[in-house]
Design a protein around this nucleic acid. Structure first.
Lengths: 139, 139
DNA sequence: CGTCTGGCTTACGTAAACGTCATCGTCCCT
DNA sequence: AGGGACGATGACGTTTACGTAAGCCAGACG
């Protein structure tokens, strides 16, 4: 009738550490490290970690933040904005102001990124043209 | 008639290490470190470093690259694409292929950045609405 | 029953990117 | 001649973000 395993810890879709590693292409060490830095909060089944959907969502945001060059500490502060479960109002307010700063960072980064992409494209064309002998080296 | 200083090293617009530091808001240590990693090639007047316009241009690209999360080594490889002075053709070809990879990185980053900015904006609005009591906390 | 297999903790190691002395040289000035 | 200001050269220290190895447990399995 019910799940035949005797333990009742089989709440929907928790993942073992290895499943998480495979799903996100990280090592166990990384997940334990993130937990020690309070970026993830896996529950415990005895000794073993069980990662929830909340942890998956947070990890996704963590890895994305890293690709944008944010430090784990900056990311940690931002994460409080998502999954607001039991946060105090004051915490949310400060998270909001931190988020505004990060948003500013990201918008500036996007503008600069556009510019850099353009420049790199131009420079690549210039060099490519040089190599095909269409133009002589001008510095 | 000419510049009254007796040394002839006063080629147009070289900068001392301090001038560079002030111009780019970095420390002397950073500039020496970049030189040791072959990212900059200041000329020497006796013992002292003199940074050329080439170094300024490279430093600008270095700092930009860092803001995009590239490592100094990745940046170093890219720099060979700019200021192509005496590069061998094979070097330029390999620089071009490296540049294609970096360009891919940057374009992917741009797309992801757009998405992340959107998500963050949404989440901020959601939390802001929560705080003004318009919506109840849904997780 | 022994031994994998998977996971846990503890702890030392490492690479990148500088920071921080300590020491020394050298113009420049009074 | 003495003393700053500026700069150079080691060389060791620091932070971030993990890697890696040692040793211990517990369930699964032939």
């Amino acid at each position: 009738m019910f799940d035949s395993t005797e333990s009742l810890t089989m709440t929907p879709k928790t993942m073992t550490i290895r499943e998480m590693c495979d799903a996100f292409d990280v090592t166990p060490r990384t997940l334990r490290f993130y937990e020690s830095k309070e970026l993830l909060y896996p529950i415990r089944e005895g000794q073993r970690r069980l990662f929830t959907r909340r942890d998956s969502a947070r990890l996704k945001l963590i890895l994305r933040g890293k690709r944008f060059g944010f430090s784990l500490e900056e990311i940690r502060q931002l994460l409080d904005l998502y999954y607001v479960g039991d946060s105090q109002e004051t915490q949310l307010v400060s998270a909001l102001s931190i988020a505004r700063e990060r948003l500013g960072d990201m918008e500036r980064q996007r503008a600069e990124l556009d510019e850099a992409i353009d420049e790199l494209r131009n420079q690549m064309n210039l060099v490519a043209d040089m190599l095909t002998g269409r133009i002589s080296a001008a510095q």
